[in-house]
Design a protein around this nucleic acid. Structure first.
Lengths: 197, 197
DNA sequence: GGAAAATGCAAACAAATGTTTATAATTTGC
DNA sequence: GCAAATTATAAACATTTGTTTGCATTTTCC
C-alpha cells in the first residue's frame, strides 16, 4: 500500500479515532479542525488521495460516510441469558443487554444472537465458562459444526455429528459424556467466540 | 425498557441494519424510504421517541449520527504477524491486514494491535492456535495477567507472575514449561480473544 | 534562478440533511 | 357520535456538509 504524507496520515488516523470514540464518521470540517489545516478544500484533497490509495471508502456526496477500508459493520446482538423450548428466542431481547459484534456484512442482522457460556463442557475447543458466543440462527448444519441445540428445554452448545439414525452432541471435554438423541432442535451455529479480560 | 410501536421498531431495526451492512447511520430520508412512510417529519417524530425511550443515541443537528444505544465504537486494529526485538511493532502495520474490534471507547486507538496465535501453549486458558488476541500496549502489568512478552526476539503470549527477583512466564498447558527470566520486555496486555468459525 | 509541480487557502456554491410549521387524517375514550 | 389525542403529511426552512473555483504559497527539479 502506498505511503502516506504526514497530513494524510493525520487525517486517516483522525477518521479511525472518530470511529473508535464516537462510532461515526467525521465531517470534512471536523477533520479540518482536528488536523489543523484551515481550508475544507485542503481536507477534501486529502480525502481524495486517501480514497485513491485505497485507505478510505466513502459514499460520494453523502454526509459523514467516510470509513477506513477494512473496518467492518457492527452488529447489535441481543445477549440471551437462557433459552427454553417454550419461549421464542427473540422474546429475550434485552434480557441481558446486547453485545457489539464487528463483522463483514454477511449475516442477516436479525438472525444473530449471543449466548453467555455456562459450564466447561466445551473448554477443549477453547470455549470457556463466561465466554460469549455469537450464534447465527439456522435450522440445518453440517457435521462437526458447533451448534446451539435445545435439549430438555435447555440451550446447550456442542459439536454436532450425525450418526446412522441419531445425532451425537459431542462435548469438547473428556469429563463430559456425549448426548445421543434422535430429535434435536438446532437453534443455530456458533460463528464466533469472544472473551474480554 | 419501554415497548415500541410497530413503526418505531421498523425504524430502529433499519438503523441497526444500516450499521451492520453499511457501517454508518442512515439519514432521515433513508429511513423514510425504507420504512415506507411519506414524510420526513414522521420519521423525525419516531427518532425523537426512540431517543426519549433510550433506544437511540444521536448528535442533534449533525448528519447521520444516529446510533442504537449499546453499539460501541469500532477499532481498526493492525494484525501483526511476527514481532521481533529489532522492529518496533507499528512498523508491521498492514503486514497481515487489520481486524475490526468492537469495544467501548476506553482504549487509545493507537495503542491496540492484534496478534494471531501460533501454537498451543495457552489452550488451557482458551487461547487456541489460530485465535486472534487483541493487545493493549503497555510497559507494566499486574500479577496473573496475560501478556505479550518478547523472549529471544520472539513475541510470546503467557501469563505473567512476579517472583522474588525474577519473572515467571507461565504457559496454560501442562505440556509446556514455564519460562523464567529476570529481564522481560512486555509489549502489552491481552484484553480480548476472538475466534471466527 | 526559474519553470513546473505540488500544496494550501478563502470563498462561494450546491447538495444533502435535520428541523419546524401548519394542517389533514386517524384513532381513542367516553 | 364527538371531542381530544395521536399520528401522518406536505411543504418550507435552516443548517450542515460535500464540492468546486480561482488564486497564493511552497516545494521540486533541472
Amino acid at each position: 500500500m502506498k505511503a502516506l504524507s504526514e497530513n494524510e496520515k493525520k487525517v486517516y488516523d483522525f477518521i479511525c479515532e472518530s470511529f473508535a470514540r464516537r462510532g461515526f464518521s467525521p465531517s470534512v470540517r471536523d477533520i479540518r479542525d482536528a488536523v489543523g489545516v484551515s481550508s475544507t478544500a485542503t481536507v477534501y484533497g486529502y480525502i481524495e488521495k486517501l480514497t485513491e490509495k485505497g485507505y478510505l471508502v466513502r459514499e460520494a456526496g453523502k454526509s459523514r460516510t467516510l470509513r477506513p477500508r477494512g473496518v467492518s459493520g457492527v452488529y447489535k446482538v441481543p445477549l440471551i441469558g437462557k433459552v427454553t423450548a417454550g419461549s421464542p428466542i427473540y422474546a429475550f431481547r434485552d434480557d441481558m443487554g446486547t453485545v457489539s459484534f464487528a463483522a463483514d456484512a454477511k449475516y442477516d442482522p436479525e438472525s444473530l444472537f449471543a449466548l453467555k457460556i455456562r459450564g466447561t463442557s466445551m473448554t477443549g475447543a477453547g470455549i470457556m465458562d463466561g465466554d460469549i458466543v455469537i450464534v447465527n440462527k439456522c435450522d440445518t448444519c453440517d457435521d462437526g459444526e458447533i451448534v446451539v441445540a435445545l435439549i430438555d428445554d435447555e440451550a446447550t452448545v456442542k459439536t454436532l455429528y450425525r450418526e446412522h439414525n441419531r445425532v451425537r452432541l459431542q462435548p469438547e471435554n473428556p469429563e463430559y459424556e456425549p448426548i445421543y438423541t434422535d430429535h434435536v432442535k438446532v437453534l443455530g451455529k456458533v460463528v464466533a467466540c469472544m472473551r474480554y479480560y
